[in-house]
Amino acid sequence: MSIFVNEKTRVVVQGITGDFGGRHAKLSLDYGTQVVAGVTPGKGGQVFEHGGKKVPIFNTVADAKRETGATVSAIFVPPPFAADAILECVDADLDLAVAITEGIPVKDMIRAKRAMEGRRTRLIGPNCPGIVTPGTGDKSHGGCRIGIAPGYIHKRGSVGVVSRSGTLTYEAVWQLTSKGHGQSTCVGIGGDPVNGTSHLDVIKLFNEDPETEAIILIGEIGGSAEVEAARWIKANCKKPVAGFIAGATAPAGRRMGHAGAVIGGADDTADAKIRIFRECGIEVAQTPSDMADALLRVWKKR
């Protein structure tokens, strides 16, 4: 098992004819992911070819779903059109929309999130590295890679990883893999202030997933999502959790790269979040180099 996606998941790529979307569609195909369709309005009927594979392109997400059975979309559409692309997935009743796009206006996301209430489609992101369920082949080949993460750093196993940041996720995954510990699923929920799936949503799914035995929770300054997840973990989580919060040295009031990474008050500093992690029984990594070791300290105890 895994969460959200597995090796059989059929993926459509919105923006497959763009540089960014095309490059990562190829990498996903190389990884063995079932990329079965592309969507670019006006280019329906064309074919995206890579490594001997032919991926049909459709004008709409609904067409792609009907013709190929795709259930999950990877969105690489430029910011002004990205909220529209997300809502097209909702209209087509996909299971999951993974929005990689960085720089979507907050107002667009406020509206899109409201329009998704009560609908079946789940959103991951935006401004996220995506999601990887590693495969069982060499260098985790054969898995489901949706987004921009490097596939080969993964290894199939039993640690769930959830993070707002891309490269910090890779750092944690690489530490785990280097120490011989694989991952069930790695989820980048994105660095924007309005996103579709929270740390808590992912933690709940990891808690229920039989393959996931332990969890790494990576957060940063800004907002209260990590605190909400930590409180839930204390009350409900059956599995060992290690955590890291980036931004201990960030000055208040400045956006640190991510639109959502800004200290707004006394409660969303790194120190405040780390304190609550400790109160909730989460093993805190001292430095970003210590993420895998922090998990092993609590995982071994059990």
Binding site: R164, S165, L168, T169, I221, A246, H258, S289
Partner: peptide, 26 residues
């Protein structure tokens, strides 16, 4: 973003950049 310390850092990715600052201080 300029800060007032003496060790500059150059990193790819916002989360990794923030935590590189943190580890310098650590």
């Amino acid at each position: 973003i300029a800060l007032d310390g003496s060790i500059a850092c150059l990193v790819n990715g916002a989360g990794l950049a923030m935590s590189t600052m943190d580890i310098i201080q650590h």
